[in-house]
Amino acid sequence: MTPEEVASLIGSAFPDAVVDAPMNTLHPAVGVVPDRWREVALFLRDDPRLRFNLLRCLSGVDRIAEGRIELVYDLMSLRPAGDGRPWSCGAVAAVRIGVPRDGGSLPSVADVWPAAEWHEREVYDLLGVSFDGHPDLRRILCPDDWVGHPLRKDYVFPVEYHGIPGSTEFGQRSPRH
C-alpha cells in the first residue's frame, strides 16, 4: 500500500482530523490534529486494511521558528505469510503531529502500541512534550533532577550539575544553532 492510499484512508475516515498530507517528500507523513490522535491511532492499528502493528519510531523535532514541536510516528504493518516464508510489509506510514512548544501535550498511545511507552518518555525527557494518560511519565535518559530539555533548540547547558562543570569541550554553553 502506498503512502497516498494510507493518507486517503485516514482522510476519508477522519475528514476533520487530517491537517495535510504532503507526498512530494522522501518521508511522506500525514498531519493529524493532536486532539484526534488517539482515535486515528486506534484506526491505524485495528482497521483490517491497515493493521499497523509495529511502532518503529517516535521522533520529536523542535520547529522553534514556528513555535511548535513536531512529533513523527513511524509505523509499519507486518503481515504473516505462512509456510515458512518471510513475513511481508503491508505498508509503511508516518504521522506528523504539531504541538505548541510551551505547555504542549497530546494523548498518549502507550496502550495502543506498548512500544510507545518508552518513546514517549524519551520525547518528554528531551523535548518537554507531555503525554496525557501515559502510565509512568517521567524522565528516562536524563537524571530525575535535570533542568530543561536538551533537544530544544533554545536549551542552555547548565553551568554545573552537582559540582560537575557544565560546558562543552569548546567552552560553549549553548548549541551552535
Binding site: L126, L141, H177
Partner: peptide, 13 residues
C-alpha cells in the same frame, strides 16, 4: 541513562 551522551544533540551540531 547512565551512558547518555545526547548523541542526537551532537548530530545537530
Amino acid at each position: 541513562g547512565y551512558l547518555h551522551r545526547c548523541a542526537e544533540k551532537i548530530g545537530e551540531n
